[in-house]
Design a protein around this nucleic acid. Structure first.
Length: 825
RNA sequence: GCGAGAGUGGCGAAAUUGGUAGACGCACUGGACUUAGGAUCCAGCGGGCCCGGCUCAUGGGGGUUCGACUCCCCCCUCUCGCACCA
């Protein structure tokens, strides 16, 4: 073997990375005509270094990008940094530096890591959300949303994380603790800014139906998160009061079974109902204890249902009946109206409560096949049935009764149809430094005054110096002491920054023209490139990021920037990289550092392994020996090509009639492989099976060229070129190097994805399975295209078969063209 | 509890308009070449047996069919998401 037979990945990868960068092979240009393809991987947080999850995510995306380029698409494949966030502040505090310098260092380091992987990004479009040229446009969008009434400010009980010293969105509270630091979340009353995502609840729900390119799982999760319920809203007048209590129910058909009313402890009426009554003390004690208990509760334990009578009553408008009002620990203020009409016979929670407090149970829906008796019931009947004891509605089917009862309430003017969503408006205020400042000013006389657009950006103070001040903005007088832009009086600048999820809600739009200096969005570029054709990322963003990005897309459409309704046509949620059965994490000590792997095996080998070990949507079990296998395969291909460099001299076209048996066999396999690889990628990005198909072709080529000397050079050349071309999107440096070594002048990356010839791919001989009573008894090799009649005869004539059959007469013979013959006796 | 998904060799996995179960790779075993081999090449590799053949086998049990990993019914296990949502 010559010295050039050694696969020197290090030199090869450096060489081609430089060449691609010089020639800007991955630059996306907005050109007229032709088909565009926008492939995007979720951009990383610049935490320090890339991990195996990134490697997997970006390898998948890069194959898609390179494959689509070879197919003639005009491909946009950008990369950037989701660069605001708390870790930068924490790191800055620890090291006495500024979050900006920590972030910039990380970005520089990680960019080099990504470049070392040979990912085909258009680096000219790189953006970092912490830079003023990004967040100033976000501030402008904020102001435009504010003008449109899509943002408002209110005082609410928020989720407060003491550790991070900030408010969290509901989506960022996981099992009652902070998603970042696992600190128990506390309720706190504060003012904050809210995006009116609920204004889009209906559209966000309805458009899930058109997301046919999304995993069912993600669509379902979003649907549940939006949580639409339809039913009746209805007023119950409070006795001896002008107040009334509004309830929401999805079961209006049970309204004649109401025997009491339950209020959440946070319900605004609760305190006034008991004020100056003998119950006041007891109710207030209950409220205090319940609030405390809710804080202490661990998420998955169901607490006992307890409550306290308020001493007051309200009137069921349907019956005129007087019913007691309770405060109860299981009623949620956040859902519906915070007041629940209690129907013990038909709601399990109400049932348990009623039994505990000796309240009446009244059956008003009788199921089909049994007769419920309140005295003997051991649990509520929540299913459908026929209405009983419900005045004019008695005898109706429960489904029909729901509509009739809502209509009745509407007619009598004490209620009507109502829709409730689980989805809440998105609280975006954060009391931290390292985020985009919210561009408004609070003036004592003018109220809330938007920062004039020509004064944007509202810059984060201190970013101009590596040791600059990065205390939270409300501690920086120089920042918040301003004069009102409207009246000129002393005023206070808003000191909250935006949730970092705001940045990631529109970055994919900004990529279409990230250097635009006078507008947030280049409408023409956005029209050309959007929507994103293929989005790839972890399933952990199924709700948070993907819902926010959908919301932003619809809102930006309504602000006139976009013409699309949905941002991501196809979504691929890749599985986690796991080791020893657990997700790789520092705390478990099972992380594999991509740097070490690239150093030891080269980027191409690492890419190949991560694509080969599992289909993309499934979890990938890390296996060091599997990487060896990938490396071995590439070395094998490297030697194979170098051994047969001379065949590339051939310029004759292939005439199949001229090929000997072995050459024809190889030629056939070549075309079959093109077909299999193309179909694997097209159908579901199952690169693992694509790679295995290429391995088969490589194996056959090695075998045939080893066995015989007289392989037709044209067939061999076609096989080798096909191997390199099909493998290119996965292991680009490697293939480009061999492509050049075999005398090609143009870059393989700009080559065209091969077509397969059905004729050439067709088998000449096919294997027919002969079954007797469904069991395989023999295999026959017959010429392709043998007709059913001949197949049947050949099967019956087979020695083994005729022996087995002896003299039994076949009852039935089933022939499947090109596949099998089944003889039933 | 509700919702979604998944269960195939020692391991990662292939195969679905129902038609040879285990492609491809890892690990392992034997052999070749070698001073050496953790390189390379060749062969074997689900279980059982009276092994050149037969038989069992795709979480378990039933069903449909000439034929079921694939379709239908029941059950078990695991993963993920949501969870007192009125």
């Amino acid at each position: 073997m010559g010295t050039n037979d050694k696969y020197e990945y290090k030199a090869i990868e450096q060489k081609w990375q430089q060449r691609w960068a010089q020639e800007k092979t991955d630059r996306a240009t907005h050109r007229t005509g032709g088909k565009k393809y926008y492939v995007l991987e979720m951009f990383p947080y610049p935490s320090g270094r890339i991990h195996m999850g990134h490697v997997r995510n970006y390898s998948i995306g890069d194959v898609v990008a390179r494959y689509k380029r070879m197919q003639g698409f005009n491909v946009l494949h950008p990369m950037g940094w989701d660069a605001f966030g708390l870790p930068a502040e924490n790191a800055a505090m620890q090291r006495g530096i500024h979050p900006a310098s920590w972030t910039d260092e990380n970005i520089d380091y990680m960019r080099n890591q990504l470049k070392a992987m040979g990912l085909s990004y258009d680096w000219d479009r790189e953006l970092a959300t912490c830079r003023p040229d990004y967040y100033r446009w976000e501030q402008q969008l904020f102001l435009e949303m504010l003008e449109k009434g899509l943002i408002y400010r209110k005082e609410t009980v928020v989720n407060w994380c003491d550790d991070c010293r900030t408010v969290l969105a509901r989506e960022q509270v996981v099992d009652g603790v902070c998603w970042r630091c696992d600190q128990l979340v506390q309720p706190k009353t504060m003012h904050g800014w809210f995006f009116k995502i609920t204004a889009y609840a209906e559209e966000l729900l309805a458009d899930l139906d058109i997301l046919t390119g999304w995993p069912e799982k993600v669509v379902t999760m979003q649907r549940n998160w939006i949580g639409k319920s339809t039913g009746l809203a209805c007023d119950f007048k409070v006795e001896n009061s002008t107040e009334s209590i509004t309830i929401f129910t999805t079961r209006p058909d049970t309204i004649f079974g109401v025997t009491f009313m339950s209020l959440a402890v946070e319900h605004p009426l609760l305190k006034s109902l008991t004020a100056d009554t003998s119950q006041e003390q007891e109710v207030n004690d209950f409220i205090r204890e319940t609030v405390l208990a809710k804080q202490r509760a661990t998420p998955d334990q169901e607490t006992e249902k307890i409550g306290v009578f308020t001493g007051r009553h309200c009137i069921n408008p349907f019956t005129g009946e007087r019913i007691p009002i309770y405060a109860a620990n299981f009623v949620l203020m956040e859902y519906g109206t915070g007041a629940v009409m209690a129907v013990p016979a038909h709601d399990q929670r109400d049932f348990e409560f009623a039994r505990a407090y000796g309240l009446p149970v009244r059956v008003v829906v009788q199921p089909q096949d049994e007769q419920l008796d309140p005295a003997t019931m051991s649990m509520a009947w929540e299913g459908p049935g026929i209405l009983a004891d419900s005045r004019q509605f008695s005898g109706m089917d429960s489904t029909a009764a729901q509509a009739a009862i809502i209509a009745f309430a509407e007619e009598k003017n004490f209620g009507g149809p109502h829709i409730t969503y689980r989805l809440r408006d998105w609280g975006i205020s954060r009391q931290r430094y390292w985020g985009a400042p919210i561009p408004v000013i609070h003036c004592g006389t003018c109220g809330i005054v938007p920062v004039p657009k020509n004064q944007l950006p509202v810059l984060l103070p201190g970013t101009d110096r590596p040791d600059g001040d990065h205390r939270p903005l409300h501690q920086q007088e120089k920042f918040f002491m301003v004069s009102c832009p409207r009246c000129g009086e002393m005023a206070r600048r808003e000191t909250d920054t935006m949730d970092t999820f705001v940045e990631s809600s529109w970055y994919f739009v900004r990529y279409t023209n990230p250097s635009l200096t006078d507008h947030p969005i280049d409408e023409e570029a956005a029209r050309y490139w959007l929507p994103v054709d293929q989005y790839i990322g972890g399933v952990e963003h199924a709700i948070l990021h993907l819902l926010y990005a959908r919301f932003f897309t619809k809102m930006l459409r309504d602000l006139g920037y976009l013409t699309i309704d949905e941002p991501f046509t196809n979504l691929l949620t890749q599985g986690m990289v796991i080791k020893d059965g657990a997700k790789m994490s520092k705390s478990k000590g099972n992380v594999v550092d991509p740097n070490d792997l690239i150093e030891r095996y080269g980027a191409d080998t690492v890419r190949l392994f991560s694509l080969f070990a599992a289909p993309p949507e499934r979890d990938l079990e890390w296996n060091a020996q599997g990487v060896e296998g990938a490396s071995r395969f590439l070395n094998r291909v490297y030697r194979l090509v170098h051994r047969h460099l001379d065949c590339f001299q051939n310029v004759e076209p292939i005439d199949r009639a001229d090929l000997n048996d072995a050459s024809r066999k190889l030629h056939r396999k070549t075309h079959q492989t093109i077909q299999r690889v193309t179909e694997s990628i097209e159908s579901n990005f199952h690169f693992n099976t694509a790679i295995s198909a290429i391995m088969e072709l490589v194996n056959l080529t090695v075998t045939l060229t080893g066995e015989q000397e007289d392989m037709h050079p044209a067939a061999l050349k076609k096989a080798l070129e096909t191997i390199l071309t099909l493998l290119f999107p996965m292991v680009p440096h490697f293939c480009e190097e061999l492509w050049e070594a075999s005398g090609h002048r143009h870059l393989l990356g700009s080559a065209v994805w091969p077509d397969y010839d059905r004729e050439a791919a067709r088998e000449e001989e096919i294997l027919i399975v002969v079954q007797v009573n469904g069991k395989v008894r023999a295999r026959l090799s017959v010429p392709a295209g043998t007709d059913d009649q001949a197949l049947q005869q050949a099967a019956l004539a087979d020695q083994k078969i005729s022996q087995l059959l002896e003299n039994k007469k076949p009852k039935k013979i089933i022939v499947v063209q090109g596949k099998l013959v089944n003889i039933v006796v």
